[in-house]
């Protein structure tokens, strides 16, 4: 976390970083339909083993 007086950075540029090594396709499919409990991609886990070893999540 970057500490500042007026701003607290909760999460950095995770999305921008992911463009370099993303797209492996190992993750779960993400149905967006309300009739299945799987809406939004934002709550899915990355299952690329190379990515998951890099850092621990900041927040739970």
């Amino acid at each position: 976390m970057v500490a500042m007086k007026h701003i607290k950075v909760i999460s950095g540029a995770a999305l921008k970083k992911s463009i370099r090594e993303g797209g492996c396709g190992a993750c779960q499919t993400s149905c967006q339909s309300a009739c299945k409990t799987s809406c939004t991609v934002g709550n899915q886990k990355c299952e690329n083993p190379r990515q998951s070893k890099k850092s621990l999540p900041l927040a739970k």
Binding site: I10, S11, A14, L15, K16, S18, I19, E21, G22, G23, C24, C27, S30, V41, G42, N43, Q44, K45, C46, N48, Q51, S52, S55, P57, L58, A59
Partner: peptide, 8 residues
Amino acid sequence: DLEQGPCF
């Protein structure tokens, strides 16, 4: 997941 969610 803000840090290790799905890639772009």
